[in-house]
Design a protein around this nucleic acid. Sequence first.
RNA 1: UCCCUGGUAGCUCAAUGGUAGAGUAUCCGGCUGUUAACCGGAGUGUUGUAGGUUCGAAUCCUACCCAGGGAGCCA
Length: 436
Amino acid sequence: MEDHCYMTQVYINQLNNYKDKEVCLKGWLYNKRSSGKMQFLLVRDGTGLVQCVLFKGDASEELFNLCGTIPQESSVIVNGTVREDKRSPGGVELTILDINVVQKAEEYPISLKSHGPDFLLGNRHLWIRSKKQHATLRIRDEVVKAIRDYFYEKDFVLIDAPVFTPAACEGTTTLFEVDYFDDKAYLTQSGQLYMEAACMAFGKVYCFGPSFRAEKSKTRKHLTEFWMVEPEIAYADLSDVMDMTEDFVSYIVQRVIKNRPDELEALERDISLLKKIVPPFPRLSYTEAVDLMQKGGHEFEWGGDLGAPDESFIVEQFEKPVLIHRFPAKVKAFYMKNDPEDNNLALCVDMLAPEGVGEIIGGGQREDELDILSEKINRHNLPEEAFKWYLDLRRYGSVPHAGFGLGIERVVGWLCGSSHVRETIPFPRMLYRIYP
RNA sequence: UCCCUGGUAGCUCAAUGGUAGAGUAUCCGGCUGUUAACCGGAGUGUUGUAGGUUCGAAUCCUACCCAGGGAGCCA
């Protein structure tokens, strides 16, 4: 292969630095067009797309004919001269000197025309080569890097939570059960309980990994396997966590706007909406949210959890994500601490993102008193022996602590304007879909 | 689990009871600046499966399978 690349190998996103120089591109044929005595080959290499041009008069007949017959997605090595040209997409193009077909592709199933979701998901391994999918996954990469940078800069310690867990955090009905030698184990649905242990050891911690939910949800917001980042902070309360969520989410959004403008543009995303995402975010207590709905003519009775239409109604009143805190304790998980000012309320917070995205964060302050937590575990009919270690945390130096979980795919979907979270993870796992 | 929508060519769709079609992809031909290029030509079918109604079913009925969207639940 080396003898076909006799010039400097350059990635497409670096071509601007090689104007009028001869370079070698290694990539795949994205699309081709011809116009009689000209061939236009659109080549991608993972970093971008560039148009490669060949005039019939400038090339041997063999080379010219070859260019016209290379099938879509064939792997190619192209030698050529970089030229500035306004007619070319991207403003830079390559005048072809030589081309080597590494592998002539078979008939490629994904055309540049429209396809249905079933077909595309069945061809996900190829679909990720397409422009919008490529941009989405690049933005995911940026979101993940932003998250890691944010926590690193704030002296959080990454503590990976286990994927195999002995029992449920919040009941077993929505867990994937697996054989674990002669026993049963479950795939984690949250690393939170382990983060509570870890924050008592390291102060400020987070985990970042996959979560599994065996819920039979068939909506654009659900995957059975999704990625979640979960920070947990010792000596923090609900107010600290609310401050952090808006700072954190704003940081992620602004990082993506700054570092991934080309990808956002490829996705035709309206950036003006995202630019507004800076602290502070509107904050409503659950009770205030109920009031807002009732005054706005949206029927809702105090006491129930917010359903999807209720969330939409609230979010539509604002341009930024909305923080809703202090839900009725009854509708929230057992580990939430009750509000000392009103024992019917939990010290929890949800962040609802705009543009129909909905909940991207759930979090709050944890119950730190042994007796109360033990009582709550019993009341929820959870196996106490499985939570012995968790209760230990309230025996040995218990302190107020709080944290939250943020769903990566929903955030990426929001930033990309995706119609479905399945496009925001490389290989989505969904109800009845585990191929490829 | 429930509700709604759909399943026809490789792909995207049309045909609403009377000979199953178009675009695209593929192959051939044309064009010196194409931008999902365009123009001309060619081949392409177990109409999701099984049964039923009918002279006749892609079309109507029943069951099942598969997919999409939503509810619940959640991130």
